[in-house]
Every structure is written in C-alpha cells, then in structure tokens.
Design a protein around this nucleic acid. Structure first.
Lengths: 168, 168
DNA sequence: ATAGTAACTTGCATCATGATAGTTACTCGT
DNA sequence: ACGAGTAACTATCATGATGCAAGTTACTAT
C-alpha cells in the first residue's frame, strides 16, 4: 500500500509534512541552514545512501525549498541553495532541536545553540507576533479560514476548545 | 533494509524525530493538543488505519509523550493524555502549521490560529528567551555541548558558520 | 434478547526504503 | 599523457513497514 498522501488534507501542518517529504529531508534542511550546499557535503554529514539523497534533494527542489544551481560546467556540478521557503523552515528546526535537547537525554547534551555574536546560549521561545504574549495551547484555538468547507467546520467543531470562554 | 535509526545520532533534532516516530505521530500530537484523547476520536479525525494508530499510540506512550490512562474498567477502556513532554511539542506544531499556511497554498487557507480570548489572529514568532531578540539562522550557531565527542567537534567544524565574527 | 458501538488485534498483499555496487565525467599529480 | 582520485549520481534487489479488510471482545441501549 502506498503511504497515504497528506497533500489533500486541509490542515496546513499535515500539508507541510507532505511538502517536506520525510525524515531525511528535515535533516538535509538542518544542514543546509548551517551552510552546507553540495551533494557530498550532505552525504558525508548525514551518512545517507546517495540514491536516497538524490531523491530527497529532487523532492525538496520540486517543492520549492531548494534551488538547484549550476556552479561548474563540464562536468555539470550543482549545488542546492535554500529558497525563502526553505530558509523559512528554520523556526521548525529550532523548535525541534530545543524539544530534543530538553526532553531526550538522560545522557548529556552534545550540541547547544549559541549567539553568533556573543557565543552565549540561546533558547528559542514562541510568542505572538502582535501582542508579544507567550504562545500556549490553552490560549490558542483553531478557527476556520476563508477556504474552509463543511468538513473543516466539522473537524474544528470536534476539537474541544481548551479555553471555553470564546466560541469560534 | 530497516530504516536507519536516528536514535544514536548526536543531533537533538534527529533524535527528536526518532522519538516522535513518524508523520502520523505528529498529526496525533496535533489533535491531542486540541483536546482529543480517545482512540476513536483520533481515528475518525485522522482517517488513519486502526492498527497503525494502535502502533503509533503505543510508540508515543513508550517514548513518554502520552500517558495511557484507564477511564473505564470492564471493559478496560483507555484514553491517551499528554505528558509534559508531549505538551511541550506544541511549539514545533505551531512552527509547522505557520510554515504550511505561509508557503503551501496557491489555494486559500482553510484554518487559522486565533487567540482563545479575543478571537484575533495569532502569528507565532521565535525569539530568544533571554535577550528577546529574533531568532535567525544568521545569528545562531551550533556549539559543542558538554557531552560532545570528537565526531561532534568534526561535524560542527564542517559547518560553515554564517556569521564569522565568532569562532566556536 | 438483539443490535450497535468502542477499542482494538490479526493477516496479508504490496509498495517504498535503503545498502551495495556500478557508471560517467571530469581533475590532478607526475 | 597516463593513472588515480573524486563528484554526483543511477541501478539492483531483498527486506520490512504500511494500510486495508476482517475478526474479536466486551460492553451499552432498547
């Protein structure tokens, strides 16, 4: 059976996952955001099979996260540079990284995030862009957008709002 | 061949992915953070095959993201409630949701995030917890943590720091 | 007493995955 | 100018994860 495609899902998170593709793609993006761009750089750093890497880079390029750029003619050699869309994936990576560091180890942390200028530890925090208030599940609800159809309305209705003071 | 396990990777992001398990798990967490907790609630809402759902819930419980709680004896019926670790996955979901909404559609958005109190749109933004400054790839570098071994040092050395004013 | 539902588990066919190995086309040292 | 080395893939193929359909158990409702 084929893996169920999330691309027809209404939820943007599900569609985001479909767009990214798979686990490896996320690690490729992680490396790309650290400055890697060549095929062999990714391969060495990830230890991924080259055919898989080929497929993933193609997928990410098709999805508009990478731009495939010729950096050397004859033989044609390409590098993969992040588009805006790809670079914008950064917050997802940071959230994931932080979650990992906070919850995974009984062992110690092997990597930390630091400020590029001062070298001090960085710890990302999610706030609301407008109000500046922290972002918590209790304060955040899902509401139908402009393109919501009946199924979306049903889905949202099924969700129990954490905070019942406001009805969507 | 078995899917390569990321659990031995040093990068916390990679290990986070391993801990979560797969695509479906992320959507299960999404629903759980919206208040769902019963097997059939997840199944209806996701359209996932029940055996897959069983497996994923077990995995997430084993990994400590869910607690399996008996809510009805004879017949034993369980609900899956998020632990702190599970609830802490929220920022990752929000980052993913936002990325999806911003980059995916040519079609319109079917869902938005709103403030539970005021009903106004919410837009998450990543800042540094201490300095309050925005979180950008250019300002953020990877440095070895306490448990870093030689391979980690090598990996980090291979990464080209975006901002070269500081050497890790 | 019968029907219906909740929450699974089992079996099985199939498709996608990943390790290994092969290919093409250069570059570099001597 | 010849051979070794490297970059960037592509091809092969066995394994095993996935998802559908159907079965199971134990209630609840009428």
């Amino acid at each position: 059976m084929q893996r169920t495609s999330f691309s027809t899902f209404k939820c943007p998170a599900a569609r985001a996952l479909e767009s990214v593709g798979d686990w490896w793609s996320i690690l490729i993006l992680r490396d790309a955001l650290q400055g890697l761009s060549r095929f062999d750089e990714f391969q060495r750093n990830l230890g991924v099979a080259p055919n898989i890497l080929t497929r993933r880079l193609k997928h990410l390029t098709d999805e508009g996260l990478f731009e495939r750029r010729l950096y050397h003619e004859r033989p044609p050699r390409y590098e993969y540079v992040l588009t805006d869309k790809g670079r914008d994936f950064f917050p997802v990576l940071m959230a994931l990284f932080t979650w990992g560091n906070r919850h995974l180890p009984p062992e110690q942390v092997a990597m930390r995030l630091a400020d590029a200028n001062t070298g001090e530890d960085r710890d990302p925090l999610l706030i609301d862009r407008v109000t500046g208030r922290t972002f918590q599940p209790e304060d955040t609800i899902l509401v139908p957008g402009p393109a919501a159809d009946d199924t979306v309305h049903e889905r949202i209705a099924e969700m129990k709002a954490w905070f019942l003071g406001f009805d969507a």
